[in-house]
Amino acid sequence: MAKKKLKELVINRDWCKGCGICVAFCPKKVLELDKEDKSVAVRPQDCICCKLCEIRCPDLAIEVVIEPDKEK
């Protein structure tokens, strides 16, 4: 199985309340809270697309968009 590649980390800034759950549980420390206490992807190149942020986000504000597999 080929490694999943991140296309985009979509974060809905209107819905994010800055609880920091995504930041705390990201295994690769991709996310951080900015000055406005909203989640931002500061190191998207490190993302392994585990979707832990997406499934735990209480505000349903994060979506991990994965690059479609080209080999198929």
């Binding site: 819905w15 609880c19 735990r56 209480p58 505000d59």
Partner: peptide, 16 residues
């Protein structure tokens, strides 16, 4: 949305 639950409320995760 955004919903009325507090920041970090677990109920949002349950909904998810």
């Amino acid at each position: 949305f955004p919903h009325m639950w507090c920041p970090g409320c677990g109920h949002g995760t349950v909904l998810n």
